[in-house]
């Protein structure tokens, strides 16, 4: 049982942890604060932390400059679509590996993961050519497919670790009860694995949302998601910190909020079954 800890030690722990937590969070906080400053306050020397006149002008400017809504929509569709596509393909595969393991299961899993190590640049041009040929360049569906493929190994692995926790006897019971394989997966396995599937979904939405190689290189105007929206601010033509901050806040806010709400499930999924 937990021993009582000296309050002084608890206070020191608290102070230290909060300081470090604050330090780690500070760049984000600073960005959000700056987004409400005027451009002049944003570069003021010495820097102003809280005591400034809060303004929304940067958000207005960003909205005028580019169509945030379309980028956001593209991000949602691409991240969501690729994740759903991936889950649909990964659930049967993970079922096979978890419940009908063979000598090759481990090799297949590691092989899948190793495809993630293939450097994207190495195959950028071929993919680019294929995309042109198939008319997928600068389309949401094209990006969905690519992001689904690069995250598929992670999805399979995560689902596999979740499925492995489900006792095989329950699935056998379903089989004895007359369930076909399809019914077994739909009525028994999937509902039982909902927490695992949810955290897998979440992680992949985050990975897809933040993916910045394929989204930058395979889109132009039509299908560009928020990664491209923000990259357009990296051009050196006159830097405006406040507007940059506003754009950054708008790009990360949806996923940050989603992530915060679901961090508990997310963390359990991230451990890939290595930690019980």
């Amino acid at each position: 049982m937990a021993r009582s800890i000296a309050p002084r030690r608890k206070a020191i722990n608290t102070l230290l942890a909060w300081s470090i937590g604050f330090l780690i969070f500070f760049p984000i906080l600073w960005t959000i604060l700056t987004s409400f400053k005027t451009e002049a306050t944003a570069i003021a020397n010495p820097p102003v932390f809280i005591g400034f006149d809060w303004t929304l002008e940067n958000y207005q400017a960003v909205m005028e400059r580019s169509n945030y809504g379309r980028f956001l929509w593209n991000s949602i569709v691409i991240a969501g679509g690729s994740t759903i596509l991936g889950i649909l393909i990964a659930i049967p595969a993970a079922w096979s590996m978890a419940f009908v393991p063979s000598k090759r299961t481990k090799d297949i899993l590691l092989w899948m993961l190793s495809t993630k190590m293939l450097p994207a640049v190495g195959v950028l041009y071929p993919i680019y050519l294929l995309f042109i040929r198939m008319g997928l360049l600068d389309t949401k569906i094209g990006l969905m497919i690519v992001l689904m493929l690069i995250n598929l190994p992670i999805i399979v692995w995560m689902l596999y670790t979740y499925f492995k926790e489900i006792p095989g006897e329950i699935l056998e019971a379903a089989r004895m009860d007359g369930a076909t394989l399809r019914e077994e997966v739909i009525y028994i396995l999937t509902p039982m694995a909902i927490p695992g599937i949810a955290s897998t979904l979440l992680l992949n939405v985050i990975l897809a949302w933040n993916e910045a190689f394929w989204t930058l290189n395979l889109t132009a105007a039509k299908a560009a998601p928020l990664t491209a929206f923000i990259a357009s601010y990296s051009s050196p033509e006159g830097l405006f910190y406040a507007k940059l901050s506003a754009a950054s806040t708008m790009a990360i806010a949806p996923i940050l909020i989603l992530g915060w709400f679901s961090q508990k499930q997310l963390v359990s999924g991230l451990t890939f079954g290595a930690v019980k």
């Binding site: 969070f25 760049p27 990664t227 990259a231 910190y241």
Partner: peptide, 30 residues
């Protein structure tokens, strides 16, 4: 043991959700 451990966790996890383009831009400029 500490006070507000959940909140500290939320602070610490935050950078993971930030897209690389944003974090690079923010660090570089600001």
């Amino acid at each position: 043991p500490m006070w507000g451990q959940g909140m500290v966790r939320i602070l610490v996890i935050a950078p993971f959700f930030v897209m690389p383009t944003v974090s690079a831009l923010v660090w570089k400029n600001m």
